[in-house]
């Protein structure tokens, strides 16, 4: 189960997300994520994928491996979620609402940090065409610093 602190990060603080898959030959691929939401079981994350990066179903059906990294731009607080693909869907109303929230948050923060116009930043977060659902198996801290790479869930043995 995703801890409460990280659920709050996912809900209110993360500003940019990217995901990774690999094919049958272990060739990795990047898929931008334009929105995310956690399902009520607090284990499954829904990732909204724009059309340009939606060529991932064959890899996921082949091996089910999915990784998602979400950062809060500015503070650099970052988590990576690794898990198992459980299905895909067309974006529903809640997915589109999550996409809009992320897009607004991204535009506001990138404007503050990099000085780029909010309109330009909003255009960079493409409308999703597909939702990937995956169940989280592991969570890693990736905030730059001495703890980077530390596994939070399940906890590493000291």
């Amino acid at each position: 189960m995703i801890p409460g602190k990280i659920l709050a990060f996912l809900e209110d603080e993360g500003t940019v997300a990217v995901s990774g898959t690999r094919d049958a030959n272990l060739i990795p691929a990047i898929h931008y994520v334009s929105g995310w939401d956690v399902e009520p079981n607090k284990r499954t994350i829904r990732c909204s994928i724009p059309q340009a990066f939606a060529d991932l179903i064959s890899s996921l059906e082949n091996n089910r491996q999915f990784s998602l990294t979400i950062e809060q731009i500015g503070s650099h607080e970052t988590y990576q979620f690794k898990g198992d693909y459980v299905g895909s869907a067309r974006p529903n109303e809640a997915d589109m609402a999550a996409h809009e929230r992320v897009k607004a948050r991204f535009a506001k923060v990138v404007n503050q940090v990099f000085g780029l116009p909010q309109e330009m930043c909003r255009a960079y977060i493409s409308r999703p065409s597909l939702v990937i659902r995956f169940t989280v198996r592991e969570i890693f801290l990736q905030t730059p610093g001495p703890g980077a790479g530390h596994r939070l869930v399940p906890p590493e043995e000291e």
Binding site: G20, R22, L26, P28, I30, Q65, S67, T78, Q80
Partner: peptide, 20 residues
């Protein structure tokens, strides 16, 4: 341009890893 980039790698046992 100073904007962070992304790299995805994959372990020998087939687990992708995504970093900024």
């Amino acid at each position: 341009n100073g904007i962070p980039a992304i790299v995805v790698t994959c372990s020998a046992d087939g687990i992708p890893n995504t970093t900024i």
